[in-house]
Amino acid sequence: MKVLLVDDEKELVSTLAERLSLRDIEADWVTTGGAAIKNVESKTYDIAVLDVKMPKISGIELKKKLEEINPVLKYIFMTGHGSEDDFITASSESGAEYYLVKPVNIDDLIQKMKEVLINPDKRDK
């Protein structure tokens, strides 16, 4: 499994990537939407883990751009929204997604990664 982590909080994504690598999951990280696009253009990933609110481009907008580059890429969103209901409302136009509310439990993240690869169209309840 190869994962791209995208969040403007460098300390968050870099640490998360290190923790995933300790669990034998190959993870790259970037802090901007532009860098994410470049990475997806040049490398093959199975899953992109996107922050919802980032400077210049939202995670939901970024997903649409990445889908054009790699149509089989799967997505998990990380959100700092206060509640899961807020995020479900905010993402209602973007189709089926998996999401986690920050702070993220790494075991939950890995579980979501496995689920999204098996059943990418399921929406979280």
Partner: peptide, 23 residues
Amino acid sequence: ASISHELKNVLAIINENAGLLED
């Protein structure tokens, strides 16, 4: 709302670093 979002990020970073220490 903006402040709570920023605090969530602070907590998320502390959470990951605590998790890394556990690892």
